[in-house]
Simulated scan of single mutants.
Amino acid sequence: MDAVAKGLTRNTGGARPWGAPAEALLITADGVRIHAVHRPADGSADGVPAVVTGVAAPSLAVVVAHGFTGAVERPALRRAAEVLARHAGVVTFSFRGHGRSEGRSTVGDREVLDLEAAIDWARSLGYPRVATVGFSMGGAVAVRHAALYPGVESVAAVSAPARWYYRGTVPMRRLHWVVMKPLGRVVGRLGLRTRIDPQEWTDVPVPPVEAAAVLGERGVPLLVVHGDSDPYFPLDHPRSLYRAAAAASGVSELWIEEGFGHAENAADEALIERVGEWLTRGL
């Protein structure tokens, strides 16, 4: 599948990972147009080939999946991309219903198709290998995607839930109100700039904890990162994800970060730097 909507790309150059930063609208498998941005790795930007600069052309792209209500334009996601670009080429995108992407958010269900379109685009730019990092909802999507679509090198899930329908904290009860209630969806659209699908799931997606077990069975490295001050999901969520993956493989890791809150908005430069190092180690 050609993930790039023809006529809607800019600065893609000759499909080289060291090309100038590119922006595109991607077509998902179910026909939704997704806004995506490519940032070359530092040292290979400005369209200058690595053979000229003497910098090795990056072989890995990190595709970043934001949390619910995030978007390509949000400062937290742009900061994460800037830090990760020290280690690899970076593709960011807005999930359906977010930012300049079309469609409506299904809060973790069909978003796997958005991530697959972004990965497909990264490969079309010339990257032979792709890793993913997801925050909160994006972390759950990244874990599920890797279980459904083999071929991702590694996955980092930051502040991700282990199971669906969790309402054990006040922020998650508020989030369920936004997603499930008509007035809540109005608040989501006007206040949070997120367009939410009013239809409930007909088939409940495989829970992230079960998808993590599939990654373990396949030997796909999974990094689970969570804060001990996360207001949304308590520590049994990251521990469940890690145990599910580690039970079948020894290549997964669990980081419980002291004082860390939730997702990309709370992740500082030092933490994202460490995640970038983990994703690219051994490459």
Rank of each mutant, 00 (worst) to 15 (best):
V141S: 03
L215H: 13
G188N: 03
G227D: 03
P205H: 04
A61S: 14
A156P: 00
G151L: 11
V155S: 06
V48S: 05
I256V: 14
S229W: 10
P208T: 07
L113P: 00
H87F: 12
G219C: 08
S105H: 02
A157V: 14
E273A: 13
L241K: 01
R110V: 01
V52M: 15
A22H: 08
I272S: 05
L115A: 11
D236L: 01
S159G: 15
V179I: 14
R167Q: 14
V52F: 14
E200K: 07
S229C: 09
A3L: 05
G89Q: 05
A118N: 04
A36L: 04
A140G: 15
R129H: 14
D120A: 14
G259F: 00
H38L: 09
A267Y: 03
D30G: 10
A41K: 14
R123E: 10
E253R: 14
G99K: 08
G19A: 14
D42S: 13
G250T: 12
A157C: 09
P198S: 10
H145G: 04
A41W: 03
L77T: 06
D230V: 09
S101W: 03
E200I: 07
L271N: 07
S44N: 13
R74W: 04
V130M: 02
A212G: 07
D42T: 14
G191M: 11
G184S: 11
A213R: 05
G126N: 02
R39H: 14
I27Y: 04
A29Q: 12
F95R: 01
G138A: 13
R174V: 12
V141R: 03
N11K: 13
V91N: 04
L183R: 08
A20Y: 05
D230F: 09
E23W: 11
S105G: 11
S229Q: 15
D114L: 02
L148C: 09
H87C: 06
V133G: 05
S44A: 10
L241D: 00
L26C: 10
A117P: 01
D42C: 04
R123M: 10
P75W: 06
M172D: 01
V158P: 00
E73I: 10
V48E: 08
L222C: 11
L115I: 10
L60P: 00
H226P: 03
T69Y: 02
L183P: 00
G168A: 10
H226Y: 04
V83Y: 07
V133C: 09
I256T: 15
G99H: 04
V112M: 01
L190Q: 10
V63F: 07
F135A: 08
S154V: 05
G282K: 07
R16D: 15
E200T: 12
E264K: 01
A147L: 08
T28M: 04
G70I: 08
M172T: 14
G168Q: 06
G219M: 09
T169Y: 05
R10Y: 13
L283G: 12
I272M: 13
L192Q: 08
A3P: 15
R218G: 11
W121H: 11
E210F: 08
W164M: 02
R281V: 10
V52P: 00
Q199F: 11
F135H: 09
H35E: 13
G151T: 06
G126E: 01
